[in-house]
Computed example of a mutant assay.
Amino acid sequence: MTVMRVERVVYGVPNLEECVRFFTDFGLDPVDGGENGARFATQTGQVLELRDVDDPSLPPPVQSGPTLREIVWGGDSQESLDKLATNLLSDRSIYTDADGVAHTTDETGFGVGLAVSQPVTGRTNFPGSNRSGNVNRWNDPLAHPGRVKPLRLCHVALDIKKEGKEEAVAFYTERLGFVPTDRPAKVGVFMRAPGDTDHHTLLLCHRPDRNQINHCAFEVARIDEVIVGANDMIDKGWHEARRLGRHTVGSNIFRFIHAPCGGRMEFAADMDRVDDSYGPNDYEETPPHTIWTLR
């Protein structure tokens, strides 16, 4: 199986109404969530699902309170999905639901799902940028972007305990085929899904003593939407977690908002795209966290 992208993330929450308001304000589109929760979709068809924290069908939580319970990875075909699920059966239990999604857990305890990816085409006609020698926008003044609607869920970052980190990373690289891109020794491992070209689709951050959700990142078209999207969230009463900046590893522009479902949500733009010739790059000394950030 070639894992292409994050297909769905599932949170267990005690505060469903508050979380629904958050993701409505965040710009995701509501879709049918059934009787026991709520679902939202990106412009490319990925799903963020909210379920009751005590829902017995969810994997056990790795931390108390609202948190991420499962990442469902989208693959390229049912045939390759079946092969991967069969391989995982050698050392863990797997449950396949009525929709054909296989469910298990990783070495840290986070739920892992495997499903056939069902992408849809989102908007692509965004204004270009101009600079001397590279003009991409003629006779087309920019306007306010309006309500920001994330294009896709581009990556998930998980905090994992340092003890057992090698096994945690190996589950994704050796069992699911993820490709490491950058490995700052004191930070963690950035890796991309084998069918993705983003610098990273998953980040496993090494922590001394805890497993928890760090953040989910949602791609928007350009820096204007990173700024406006977060401004709108703050205007609606949500709290900024990290001010505007550009990361060193991955190069993406970012702005983070605290999320009531656990962890943070990131508006992200302009991440590095890489292929199989890139990395992995190992760093004994940690690169600067940002190229720049607002003061």
Rank of each mutant, 00 (worst) to 15 (best):
T2P: 14
E7S: 10
V10D: 01
Y11I: 02
N15T: 03
E17Y: 00
E18C: 01
V20S: 05
F22S: 05
F22T: 04
D25R: 01
L28V: 01
D32R: 06
D32T: 05
G37T: 07
R39M: 06
A41G: 03
Q46P: 05
L48A: 01
E49Q: 06
L50R: 02
R51G: 00
D54P: 04
S57R: 14
P61L: 06
V62E: 08
G74H: 04
Q78N: 15
S80E: 15
A85M: 13
T86I: 14
L89K: 15
L89F: 14
S93A: 15
Y95A: 15
T96H: 13
A98N: 13
G100P: 09
A102R: 12
T104P: 09
T108N: 15
T108G: 14
P119H: 05
T121C: 12
G122S: 06
T124Y: 08
P127S: 06
S129H: 12
N130R: 09
N134F: 08
R137S: 11
P141I: 09
L142N: 10
A143R: 15
G146P: 09
G146I: 07
G146E: 08
L151K: 10
A157P: 00
K161W: 05
K162T: 13
E163K: 11
E163N: 10
A168N: 11
T173G: 12
R175M: 12
P180D: 09
K186I: 08
M191L: 05
H200T: 04
L203E: 04
L204Y: 04
C205G: 13
H206D: 14
R207F: 08
D209W: 11
R210T: 10
I213F: 09
C216D: 09
I223L: 12
I227F: 03
D232V: 08
S251W: 07
F256N: 01
F256G: 00
H258V: 04
A259M: 02
C261N: 04
G263T: 01
G263D: 00
M265H: 11
F267D: 02
F267L: 04
V274D: 06
D275W: 07
D275K: 06
Y278M: 06
G279S: 05
P280T: 07
N281I: 14
Y283T: 09
E284K: 11
E284F: 12
T290K: 00
L294D: 02
